Amino acid sequence: MSTILAKLPIEMREDLKAPLGPIYTDTDELLAEAGDPIVAVGDIVTYHLLEADRRPDIAIVDGKTKRERVEREVLDAIDGFDDRIDVVNPQSTITDDLLEALASAVGRSASTVIVVDGEEDLAAIPAVLAVPEGGSIVYGQPDEGMVLVSISDETRARCRDLLERMESDYERIAEILAP
């Protein structure tokens, strides 16, 4: 049974609309700027990276885009990872299940897809804390493109602040994601 460690309060939704990095519409341009490892959050972002011949080291997907099921070709493309971890993560939350899968996947040499039963929308925030410096998180900005987050002290501080302001058990989150 997964435990919710962070819940997004309604009053914080506006805070998450500002992207954590630059927005790209061209996948090749994004990949030219991306570090290693790459974590993709979202089915469509993962699909675009795969179409550009770059399998993300970690992909976090939920089979949906804008709360609708993704097309079969997207699901089929996402099926080719070395490892798969299934987790439960309800809408507008971050669970220990998701965080433990993320922490586990970061330490693997095999490409890993984390398949979320629920919603993966907030996963980019803890991913910034879990991925080593030099890595990148890529997530979708609805109707705009793909956001590239380069891991730095600044992006980590911003994500730590977001998590601490949520209804969260930040100490437990940090404990799970600690290298």
Score class of each variant (00 low, 15 high):
Ala18Ser: 15
Pro19Leu: 12
Tyr24Thr: 11
Tyr24Val: 11
Thr25Ile: 08
Asp26Phe: 06
Thr27Lys: 06
Asp28Met: 10
Glu29Cys: 05
Leu30Asp: 13
Leu30Thr: 06
Leu31Asn: 10
Ala32Ile: 01
Ala34Thr: 02
Asp36Gln: 11
Asp36Ile: 12
Asp36Tyr: 10
Asp36Asn: 14
Pro37Asn: 12
Val39Cys: 15
Ala40Ile: 03
Gly42Ile: 09
Gly42Ala: 08
Gly42Arg: 08
Asp43Glu: 09
Asp43Ala: 04
Asp43Gly: 02
Val45Pro: 08
His48Gly: 05
Leu49Arg: 07
Leu49Asp: 02
Leu50Ile: 12
Leu50Thr: 03
Glu51Gly: 01
Ala52Arg: 08
Asp53Met: 08
Arg55Val: 13
Asp57Arg: 11
Ile60Ser: 07
Ile60Leu: 14
Val61Arg: 09
Val61Gly: 11
Asp62Ile: 03
Lys64Trp: 00
Thr65Asn: 13
Val70Gln: 04
Val70Asp: 05
Glu71Ser: 13
Leu75Cys: 05
Asp76Glu: 14
Asp76Phe: 07
Ala77Thr: 12
Ala77Val: 10
Ile78His: 05
Asp79Met: 07
Asp79Trp: 02
Asp79Ala: 13
Asp83Phe: 03
Ile85Tyr: 07
Asp86Met: 09
Val87His: 00
Pro90Arg: 08
Ser92Arg: 13
Asp96Gln: 01
Asp96Tyr: 00
Leu99Trp: 04
Glu100Tyr: 01
Leu102Ala: 08
Leu102Ile: 09
Ser104Ala: 15
Gly107Trp: 00
Arg108Tyr: 06
Ser111Gly: 08
Val116Ile: 14
Glu119His: 06
